[in-house]
């Protein structure tokens, strides 16, 4: 059996940019994002897939970075909260979260935002019920979800307007 390599060298497409990364092979994408790429916007609440705080978009799909092997992400597109704004202009979801009480402590916010982004990228014409379903894998302990749903609804309306 070949010896386990000390480090893995790969290239990711992180928030639209090619980024070379090097990390110990046992690391999850969460650990590599936070510890090797200093993208600490992605949070962790359990590291076992039980809270949704670490959700990022991998090839556009919301997935949990805590249960994604970093070495399986070579060449993949990874979107994190850091890449959501266009320059200094907030994504409609970010603005709506800030304006409608979608963030209190802000700890679940990055995972919520990325999950909501995937939802609205697919279809900005969503009901409150669909929003609740989409974010039902993201725990929040502050808001009771209502203002998060308000924020996503509001952003969806704005995105619908922008598409017209």
């Amino acid at each position: 059996m070949a010896a386990i390599p000390e480090r893995v060298h790969l290239t990711y497409l992180v928030n639209g940019e090619e980024v070379p990364v090097s990390f110990a092979p046992y690391k999850t994408l969460l650990e590599v994002l936070r510890e090797d790429l200093n993208l600490t916007g992605t949070k962790h609440g359990c590291e076992l897939g039980e809270c949704g705080a670490c959700a990022v978009l991998i090839d556009g799909e919301p997935k949990l970075s805590c249960l994604t092997l970093a070495l399986e992400c070579g060449g993949r597109s990874i979107q994190t909260v850091e890449g959501l704004a266009q320059g200094t202009t907030l994504h409609p979801l970010q603005a709506a979260f800030a304006d409608h009480g979608g963030s209190q402590c802000g700890y679940c916010t990055p995972g919520m935002l990325m999950t909501a982004k995937a939802l609205l990228d697919g279809n900005p014409n969503v009901s409150r019920e669909q929003i609740k379903q989409a974010i039902s894998g993201n725990l929040c302990r502050c808001t009771g979800y209502q203002q998060i749903v308000d924020a996503i609804e509001s952003a969806a309306a704005e995105m619908r307007g922008a598409r017209k």
């Binding site: 916007g41 949070k43 909260v81 979801l93 970010q94 800030a98 009480g101 802000g106 916010t109 990055p110």
Partner: peptide, 15 residues
């Protein structure tokens, strides 16, 4: 918008 709202929505709040 709360004064720390933008930082939280951009993931810039440092815990």
């Amino acid at each position: 918008r709360r004064v720390d709202g933008r930082a939280k929505a951009t993931g810039q709040t440092q815990f």
